[in-house]
Amino acid sequence: MRIMEIALLMLALTACTGEPPSSDAITGGNPRRGLEAIQRYGCGACHRIDGAPGAYGTVGPTLQRIGERAYIAGKLPNSPGNLQQWIRFPQRIVPGNAMPDLDVSEIDARDIAAYLYHQ
């Protein structure tokens, strides 16, 4: 999905429920499990992630308010699917970048994306 598609989806879901959609509705993941996965994979060693204990890394970019960004990794339009692909396969998307492939499962990537969009 592109930013416009996400905006339209959010607008449609808001119209149906009267409230903005939750991050788990947008991503198909669970923010609570996402926080656990962030800690398990050690994401905070490189990234600052609000609400994640010990996640004060400065090697990678801060992941605060990632849902408001236009691009992921300066290359991918920001969408739940693209964020999940980046989390799983950063070296396929931008070979040689500093983020290692950590063998993140599809489910964990959905949950991590849900947490990051939830912030």
Rank of each mutant, 00 (worst) to 15 (best):
M1V: 10
R2A: 13
M4F: 10
M4T: 12
E5P: 04
I6M: 15
L8F: 02
M10E: 15
L11F: 09
L11C: 06
L13K: 13
T14E: 02
A15Q: 09
G18P: 00
E19R: 09
S23V: 01
D24F: 05
I26C: 03
T27M: 08
N30K: 07
P31W: 02
R32N: 05
A37S: 12
I38G: 04
I38K: 05
G42Y: 07
A45E: 05
R48H: 14
I49Y: 00
D50S: 14
D50Q: 15
D50A: 15
A52R: 05
A52Y: 03
P53F: 11
P53Q: 12
P53E: 13
G54Q: 03
G54W: 03
T58C: 08
V59C: 07
G60H: 02
L63R: 10
Q64H: 13
Q64R: 15
I66Q: 07
A70W: 00
P80D: 13
L83K: 05
L83T: 10
Q84V: 07
Q84H: 06
I87E: 11
R88V: 01
P90R: 02
R92W: 07
R92Y: 05
R92N: 10
I93V: 14
P95R: 01
G96Q: 07
A98Y: 13
A98S: 14
M99W: 03
M99D: 00
D101C: 00
D103Q: 08
S105V: 03
E106L: 01
I107H: 09
D108Y: 02
A109Q: 00
R110C: 08
I112V: 14
A113C: 10
A113T: 10
A113D: 04
Y115V: 00
Y115K: 10
L116D: 00
L116C: 05
Q119M: 13
